[in-house]
């Protein structure tokens, strides 16, 4: 099952490598990883999406908690949550395809953020599943480049991940 784990990490040199190293060391998967400082510059927030059964996820969470630089973490998928990912995609847009690409982007509420005579760059945000769906919908066109941010997220309601 796919899980989204959000981590508050000490913003220290080497801290990120401890988290990433854990995944390779213990043979866990990382599907995506995002990281940036929070409002508190001494803390970074990481979001990792991973796949595993309950036993594996339990081990991942326990081992992440053991890392001294990990201040706090939460498995967002345990409760209701908001998940967003950003996609920038360059698509060939010539002839009849030019209008079709624009139409598909509109359906997914994507924005064309850059244009040349032969291509569009489209920006789309949403759940990772939605971005997958958009890329699939562009199947008939020529995709030139894909840049995805990886999922980030927060819990719904008053649940807060902070120190």
């Amino acid at each position: 099952m796919r899980r989204i784990v959000s981590i508050l990490l000490e913003n220290q040199p080497g801290a990120l490598s401890r988290v990433v190293g854990l995944f390779s060391q213990r043979n866990y998967n990382i599907n995506s990883l995002t990281v940036a400082p929070t409002d508190d510059p001494t803390l970074s927030r990481l979001t990792i999406t991973t796949i595993g059964d309950d036993r594996k996820i339990e081990q991942i969470i326990k081992h992440l908690n053991k890392i001294v630089d990990v201040a706090k973490l939460v498995d967002l998928t345990e409760g209701s949550h908001i998940e967003r990912e950003l996609l920038l995609i360059k698509v060939k847009a010539t002839g009849a395809q030019r209008a079709e690409v624009k139409r598909v982007a509109d359906i997914f509420r994507g924005d064309v953020v850059d244009v040349t005579p032969t291509m569009y760059t489209i920006q789309l945000t949403g759940t990772s599943e939605k971005l997958d769906g958009f890329i699939q919908a562009l199947d008939g066109t020529t995709i030139l480049e894909v840049a995805r941010s990886g999922a980030s997220g927060v819990a719904r309601g008053e649940k807060i991940l902070s120190l």
């Binding site: 080497g14 490598s17 401890r18 190293g21 060391q25 001294v68 630089d69």
Partner: peptide, 14 residues
């Protein structure tokens, strides 16, 4: 050394 020792230490400091 921080990188080489990372998988076999509880923690490390530079």
């Amino acid at each position: 050394m921080i990188g080489v020792s990372r998988p076999v230490v509880k923690h490390s400091f530079m």
